[in-house]
Design a protein around this nucleic acid. Structure first.
Length: 423
DNA sequence: TCTGGGGTCCTAGGACCC
DNA sequence: TCTGGGGTCCTAGGACCC
């Protein structure tokens, strides 16, 4: 039997999350900004209609925002993550197989359901999510993930009120492909769009009729998979279980450029500490770390510098002080004076299970003690707010910190920020 | 003086996703 | 003043080995 896969996608997810707690923003333009309040990463429909582009730098559209009284939010991932969990929990009741694809999207395997009932079923899913959580979703259904993505996009472009599009016949498939420009195919980014356009491809329908060898040669095996999916053959596996993480990275631009080594070090120490917390929360340990420093490529008059360094650790670890120590040594190697630094980051790689490390670690008393220490640090920081306990190199400066001028409360995850209603 | 080729591992870079 | 951050996968090319 042909597979049938649904892609459920939350509409304007971050904007919808913010609106959920401020009903007066219903039908009002909303934008959510990236870290550092740098650029637009989510827009409500009303904001889209004003011509605000995805990724637009906020300082360039300031007057437009003011002029139309747009509500502006700094991104609040704690809030979005929590609401995402709730949406996913609700969705999981509707299929045996659920793949959480991103914070606002999930694939559901609906193969087992009667095909002619799928559209009705999708409406039930949609209404339930709306009723339970209040987030609007769109649902595309098709025999492959790539086609489900295409169906989902068509819902948003042409059928937003309906909320569901199901590709269950050759006619609908042809219609969907002919109405999808190549740049909107899942797996085709800006570079492949250029390549395809140069070669005369306009829509997904054109791509689906190309010779397979040409696709393989020019778009590699990934493109070949996409090609077969467009023709209705599911080639991308359904990932029931979340795959193991291969890396954990924290990297950020600074609130302002920094030119002192100790300031960059302070930022790097804090990001490295965040990596360590992530590792511990997932019971992982890093065998190598990679650090980098970088200037701001947008400052044309500044001399530019980028350098990264991969450091092999003597033993896999997830302890904050150990990771910071290696990061500091690394920075000594790659730091050059005389530049305006804008960004730094730390990536943990070659991750292994933390328990396995501890097993062969008991030979050195320090490590065992260290891991006890980390448990206490995590506990204290969870209870008294993150960063209650810090390591010396993390410092107290705020110069590297993000700008977040319009941060909304963590309505659902911090008891002191819970919404109060006056009656 | 003539001067191979196949396999494997690693890394950097490029493509993509949300 | 101000242009995101966190991921994955694939390929090409160099080093090395036999």
């Amino acid at each position: 039997m042909k597979k049938m896969i649904a892609l459920v996608d939350c509409n304007n997810f971050y904007a919808s999350c913010e609106r959920l707690f401020q009903p007066r923003l219903q039908n009002r333009p909303i934008v959510v900004l990236s870290n550092n309040d740098g650029c637009v990463i989510a827009r409500s429909d009303e904001a889209k209609e004003l011509g605000i582009e995805m990724g637009a730098p906020s300082f360039l559209i300031e007057s437009l925002l003011q002029q139309h009284n747009v509500s502006v939010f700094s991104s609040n991932y704690t809030l979005y993550g929590d609401l995402s969990d709730r949406v996913m929990t609700t969705l999981s009741q509707f299929a045996d197989q659920l793949e959480v694809y991103s914070i606002d999207e999930a694939f559901l395997n609906l193969t087992a359901f009667r095909h002619h009932h799928l559209t009705d079923y999708a409406h039930t899913i949609r209404n339930t999510v709306m009723q339970h959580i209040g987030i609007p979703v769109s649902i595309g259904i098709a025999p492959s993930k790539t086609l489900a993505k295409i169906a989902n996009r068509l819902v948003k472009k042409r059928n937003k009120q309906l909320g569901v599009y199901c590709i269950d016949s050759m006619e609908k498939m042809q219609f969907a492909l002919q109405n999808t420009p190549v740049k909107d195919i899942w797996g085709i980014g800006s570079q492949y769009t250029k390549l395809l356009t140069r070669n005369g491809f306009i829509t997904a329908w054109d791509v689906a009729r190309a010779p397979e060898e040409w696709i393989r040669k020019n778009l590699s095996v990934v493109g070949q998979r996409m090609y077969n999916e467009l023709k209705g053959t599911a080639c991308i596996a359904f990932e029931d279980m979340p795959p193991k993480k291969k890396m954990v990275c924290v990297a950020r631009g600074f609130g302002k450029v920094l030119s002192e080594k100790h300031e960059v070090m302070e930022a790097l120490a804090n990001f490295t500490a965040m990596v360590a917390v992530k590792l511990r929360s997932e019971q992982l340990a890093a065998t190598t770390i990679q650090i980098f420093v970088q200037t701001n490529a947008h400052r044309n008059n500044d001399p530019q510098y980028y350098r990264s360094l991969t450091i092999s650790l003597p033993e896999a670890t997830n302890s904050t002080n150990e990771l910071i120590r290696h990061a500091r040594q690394g920075l000594e190697t790659i730091y050059r004076p005389g530049y305006n630094y804008h960004k730094t980051g730390c990536t943990a790689m070659e991750l292994v299970s933390a328990e396995k490390v501890q097993y062969n670690i008991f030979d050195t008393e320090n490590r065992a003690r260290n891991s006890q220490l980390m448990k206490v640090v995590d506990l204290v920081n969870r209870s008294f707010g993150k960063d209650a306990v810090r390591f010396a190199l993390q410092g107290f400066s705020t110069r590297w910190k993000l700008r977040q001028l319009n941060l909304s409360p963590c309505y659902t995850t911090r008891i002191d920020e819970v919404l109060t209603i006056k009656i």
